[in-house]
Simulated assay, not measured.
Amino acid sequence: MKRKIPLIPTIIVGVAVIIMVALGVWQLERRAEKDAALALAAVNPGRPAISFPALAPVDPSILFRPSSIHCLRVVGWRTEAGRAADGSMGFRSIAECATGAEGPGALVELGIAQKPDYKPQWTGGQVAGWISQEPDHRALLTRIGGKAQPLRPMLIARAAPPGMKAAAPPNVADVPNNHLAYAVQWFFFAGIAIIIYTLALRRRTGDPS
């Protein structure tokens, strides 16, 4: 006599599969929203300048809009691989700026250097450019689940100081839209869970088929 299907494990697996499918559907919805935001960002560089956002996340409606900030002083530097306006590759020098006695400060992609250890001789001042976001180093799983911390706003400087090349202007082609891939992953995880549990049930009940 075959043993009955265990109720509690089946419920747990069923709930897990439903959650994974729901996350996949949610990522598909996010993809449509991202497509609309990128279409707007494509025309934003030519629109009038606005105030630089003080806090994350960056509203998609203002991504790549012209803006400016006043950097009171540089409190730190970051280095990232990047591309200059002339198409050459190099290293982005990102200044962490203080913009007041208190507050979150601001990030400024000042320009492109040829060496990763280059430190610009720049201590602050008024900077004009385009609104962007800091480089994304968040873990994949946190991004898939929507639990990652939002990216801080960053200004891409229009002009670079002496000794550096101007950074490439923002381009929607550089903004990843991975929501479809995330959705496929969640659906894949759901399918694998069903297959594994089905095989486990067959082994438990002695069903060789």
Results as ranks from 00 to 15, higher is better:
162 P>T: 10
136 D>S: 03
159 A>S: 15
130 W>Q: 07
143 R>D: 10
137 H>M: 11
131 I>Y: 04
83 R>Q: 12
94 I>P: 01
133 Q>H: 06
183 A>G: 01
124 G>C: 09
119 K>F: 08
157 A>S: 03
125 G>M: 09
171 N>W: 10
151 L>V: 04
113 A>H: 02
166 A>G: 08
184 V>H: 07
94 I>S: 00
108 V>T: 05
158 R>S: 08
106 A>H: 05
103 G>Q: 08
137 H>D: 13
99 T>S: 06
93 S>E: 09
105 G>A: 10
163 G>I: 12
166 A>Y: 03
117 D>N: 02
105 G>S: 11
87 G>S: 11
125 G>K: 06
99 T>K: 06
186 W>D: 07
85 A>Q: 12
179 H>A: 04
176 P>N: 03
178 N>A: 12
78 R>W: 07
127 V>Q: 03
157 A>N: 01
120 P>I: 07
188 F>V: 13
91 F>G: 02
182 Y>F: 15
154 M>Y: 01
134 E>I: 00
178 N>S: 14
95 A>L: 00
150 P>H: 05
81 A>E: 06
108 V>K: 01
114 Q>I: 11
103 G>F: 07
101 A>C: 11
90 G>K: 00
167 A>P: 04
157 A>M: 01
183 A>W: 00
166 A>E: 05
113 A>I: 02
78 R>F: 05
79 T>A: 06
143 R>I: 11
84 A>C: 13
163 G>M: 11
117 D>W: 02
136 D>H: 04
84 A>F: 05
97 C>Q: 03
156 I>T: 04
127 V>D: 01
153 P>N: 10
168 A>R: 12
121 Q>S: 15
82 G>A: 12
185 Q>L: 13
159 A>Q: 15
114 Q>A: 15
181 A>S: 14
175 V>D: 00
184 V>E: 07
95 A>Q: 02
92 R>H: 11
157 A>C: 05
81 A>R: 02
134 E>A: 04
123 T>S: 15
95 A>M: 00
135 P>D: 00
106 A>T: 02
137 H>R: 15
172 V>M: 05
114 Q>V: 11
164 M>S: 12
111 G>C: 10
137 H>Y: 14
90 G>Q: 03
182 Y>E: 06
83 R>I: 10
176 P>I: 03
171 N>M: 10
151 L>R: 04
85 A>I: 11
136 D>L: 05
125 G>I: 05
164 M>A: 13
179 H>Q: 11
106 A>Q: 05
160 A>G: 14
137 H>E: 14
100 G>K: 08
76 G>L: 05
171 N>L: 11
108 V>R: 01
184 V>N: 09
114 Q>W: 09
163 G>H: 12
177 N>I: 08
182 Y>S: 09
168 A>K: 14
145 G>I: 10
173 A>L: 13
188 F>D: 12
